[in-house]
Design a protein around this nucleic acid. Structure first.
Lengths: 115, 115
DNA sequence: ATGTCATATTGACAAACGTCGATACATCGA
DNA sequence: TCGATGTATCGACGTTTGTCAATATGACAT
């Protein structure tokens, strides 16, 4: 039986011993893989680039559904995964949920590849 | 119905417009995601780090099965995915298949995150 | 030629994933 | 308070993924 415990810190924040800097422990590999798994779907990559290119570097779900051509629940789901991985952050303002890219997280992920 | 066509160039080689450098096309997002999907499994991340840390920067399947604790076919399968993504390369020498990390591919992947 | 050894491929299976429609939740304006 | 609107969650589904045992392939030594 598997139990999913909530993480106190997002993955990308805890990341990242470099992949090529010595043998990684299972835990380190797990954290790194979790971050990259979030980047391993074309829709999510596209979402990040759309948000980053938006006015003020932020976008709400309603701005994103049409460009990616998927349903609102699906986009919401993908954004949740990106937030869980620490690659995006969410801010509720009124009825809208605004999302931003966490550049620091991208930096840390890059550091895991190019130490 | 899905048909998988062989790629003439490996993904990581063709990569990568930066994620945060303007809206990506579906094709660009697809290529980037394909690279990161290969990095999105803890076993594969571990394999890369094991190979990079090996004598001469190379390792054969037989060197890898025990450390990751998985069967030989499974390790072979993972290595195939890494090679397909351009993150590793394979060289047959006698009975053994030696694998190396393609540092350039890691660099390019990192560039997609931190332009 | 034959046997042995390292690796790849096949077939099968459970688990995880991406997607949607339907619905619940939250927030604002009237 | 009520309806409208943006978002999240739920339940379901087909597909993809990770894994293994069994088997095939290829290379060397005898």
């Amino acid at each position: 039986m598997m139990i999913a415990l909530p993480l106190l810190t997002t993955d990308a924040a805890a990341c990242c011993s470099p992949v090529t800097g010595g043998v990684l422990t299972s835990d380190e590999a797990e954290r790194i893989a979790h971050t990259f798994k979030a980047l391993g779907d074309p829709t999510r990559v596209r979402l990040l680039s759309l948000i980053a290119a938006s006015q003020g570097g932020e976008a709400c779900i309603c701005d994103l559904t049409e460009p990616v051509g998927l349903s609102q629940p699906t986009v919401s789901h993908h954004m949740k995964l990106l937030v869980d991985a620490g690659l995006a952050m969410r801010e509720q303002r009124g009825r809208w949920a605004y999302y931003r890219v966490v550049d620091d997280a991208l930096d840390r992920a890059a550091q895991a590849l190019r130490p």
